[in-house]
């Protein structure tokens, strides 16, 4: 069917084809930009390692650990994104990501170090969940949003169950979720 404007003769099929092209281009750019597997694997691995160490030996002071590991991981992540963007030739603005990352590290360390009771034990996991929701919004990534919601759900389950060493279990679970989803995203990228 022909559209009714005499100035711009355009068929519905042409309009549909243009919209389809738009979506294809956007999807490809979105896929090329997606590198969220790296911070998920890095910070997930750090979380699992710190929690296991804390559970196996004496409790590790987790807040100071993250004050060192967090910025270091942030620098490695920024480097990974920059190298990838330079190689591929497509980039997103880094500032919003950096702002979310700094807020996440500071807030999680503060809540974990200065809070008490459940806030100290599960607050960091909830801060991580909120941070990853922000990352998901910036990246327009449903997969990252699902990770954030899973971490929030895990914190909710632990708040109800209240097992011993709940802070360490929260970090172990959060780290494991991040690590597993990061590896899954990485393998999905490779099979594309």
């Amino acid at each position: 069917m022909k559209a009714e404007s005499p100035d711009h003769p355009l068929t519905a099929a042409e309009a549909a084809s243009l919209l389809e092209q738009v979506e294809l281009r956007r999807e490809r750019a979105h896929a090329d930009l997606g590198a969220s597997w790296f911070p998920l694997v890095l910070f997930g691995g750090l979380g699992v390692a710190a929690a296991l160490l804390s559970l196996a030996t004496a409790p590790v002071a987790l807040a100071p650990f993250w004050l060192v590991a967090g910025p270091l991981g942030g620098v490695l992540t920024a480097r990974h994104y920059m190298r990838r963007e330079r190689r591929l030739g497509i980039a997103r603005a880094g500032l919003p990501y950096a702002a979310v990352a700094v807020t996440l590290i500071v807030a999680a360390s503060f809540v974990g170090g200065a809070g008490s009771g459940l806030v100290r034990e599960l607050g960091p996991a909830l801060v991580v969940a909120a941070g990853y929701l922000a990352f998901a919004w910036l990246e327009r990534s449903l997969a990252v949003a699902a990770v954030a919601l899973a971490i929030g759900g895990l914190a909710g389950v632990l708040a109800v169950a209240r097992p011993p060493a709940v802070a360490e279990l929260a970090m172990l679970g959060t780290g494991a979720l991040m690590l597993a989803s990061g590896l899954a995203l990485r393998s999905r990228m490779e099979t594309r």
């Binding site: 243009l18 092209q21 738009v22 281009r25 956007r26 490809r28 750019a29 979105h30 090329d32 930009l33 030739g89 497509i90 980039a91 997103r92 603005a93």
Partner: peptide, 14 residues
């Protein structure tokens, strides 16, 4: 339209 589709998703492309 294709150029702007890519640039709408990314902030910049070479």
């Amino acid at each position: 339209l294709g150029i702007l589709s890519v640039l709408d998703e990314a902030d910049e492309a070479d």
